Simulated assay, not measured.
Amino acid sequence: MPITVNDHEITDDEIAAELPGHDTLHLATMAVILRHLLRDEAHRLGLPATDEDSAIAALLAHEVTVPEADDASCRRHYAQNPARFTVGELVEAEHILFQVTERVPLPALRGLAEQTLADLLAEPAQFGEQARKLSNCPSATLGGNLGQLGRGDTVPEFERVLFSADQGAIVPRVVETRFGLHIVRVVHRIAGRLLPYEQVCTQIAEALQQASRDAAWRQYLRVLASRARITGIDLDIADSPLLQ
């Protein structure tokens, strides 16, 4: 079934032209649809423009009000998110990786990881030996030692555990990431330094302004989509790309 927006049929050529700016065909298709919605509305309102991009920019400037990020909001964000503005924080960590593969059923792998964790919580001194024997990570040869890690050095789900774990303790649960199942120990922690508010206030204001702009644009797009005649696709504005 073809995709149409206000009786205009979306062509393969339109989607192909949009694809280089997006990760998937679906996102490219969504972007084309949003462009048509915005362009049609700009035309309906008679906004002056020389091309599609200027028409969309004029429409959003005319129709969408984005609240400014005031100093109080920026200071509140700074106080509520100190980790985002801390530099130099490091942890020295060890882990045992149980890699998920097609050859090993996940329940059996999880059972092995949980039994190993229970054994290590009872006898922490065996961590290095168990890492050398069981871990599917190159760090196994070092007893599981990953060296010093800063924020951004690992995948987010692993990082959250590393920077919230107690120093010297084995994390008392099996940690799951996209790489598999982990048993984790933070050997040493180096405290970071909180940057002063004055040094990051512009960065915070820009981030809050962008978040406000994105929320306002999505709400406006929902309104346009509710008025439009769209067929051939379920349009979910929450998952749609935002045009820059």
Score class of each variant (00 low, 15 high):
190 I>Q: 07
215 A>D: 03
172 P>G: 14
180 G>C: 09
187 V>F: 07
185 R>Y: 09
222 R>F: 09
225 A>G: 13
222 R>M: 12
215 A>F: 01
165 A>Y: 03
220 Y>P: 13
174 V>Q: 14
200 V>P: 04
199 Q>L: 01
213 R>F: 01
217 W>C: 11
185 R>L: 09
182 H>D: 14
185 R>T: 05
210 Q>I: 00
190 I>V: 08
226 S>I: 00
173 R>D: 08
167 Q>M: 05
195 L>N: 00
186 V>K: 06
168 G>M: 04
226 S>P: 02
198 E>T: 00
167 Q>D: 08
229 R>Y: 07
176 E>M: 09
218 R>E: 14
184 V>R: 08
169 A>G: 07
209 Q>L: 03
210 Q>Y: 01
183 I>Y: 10
165 A>P: 03
216 A>M: 08
225 A>R: 10
175 V>I: 15
178 R>D: 07
231 T>Q: 08
232 G>A: 03
221 L>S: 13
221 L>H: 12
170 I>W: 06
188 H>N: 10
226 S>C: 08
190 I>G: 00
209 Q>I: 01
222 R>H: 12
210 Q>H: 07
211 A>P: 02
164 S>D: 11
190 I>H: 03
206 E>N: 02
193 R>S: 11
182 H>W: 10
218 R>C: 14
224 L>R: 13
219 Q>D: 15
184 V>H: 10
233 I>P: 01
229 R>E: 11
179 F>H: 14
178 R>I: 08
229 R>F: 04
212 S>Q: 10
218 R>P: 14
176 E>T: 15
204 I>T: 12
213 R>G: 03
170 I>V: 03
169 A>L: 13
213 R>V: 02
227 R>T: 09
209 Q>S: 11
203 Q>M: 07
178 R>L: 03
217 W>N: 07
229 R>G: 02
221 L>Q: 15
197 Y>V: 01
213 R>M: 03
216 A>L: 06
181 L>M: 04
173 R>M: 14
209 Q>M: 02
207 A>Q: 10
216 A>V: 04
183 I>R: 06
220 Y>L: 09
196 P>G: 03
216 A>T: 04
172 P>I: 08
222 R>C: 12
229 R>N: 13
169 A>E: 09
230 I>V: 11
177 T>M: 11
169 A>W: 04
168 G>R: 05
215 A>H: 04
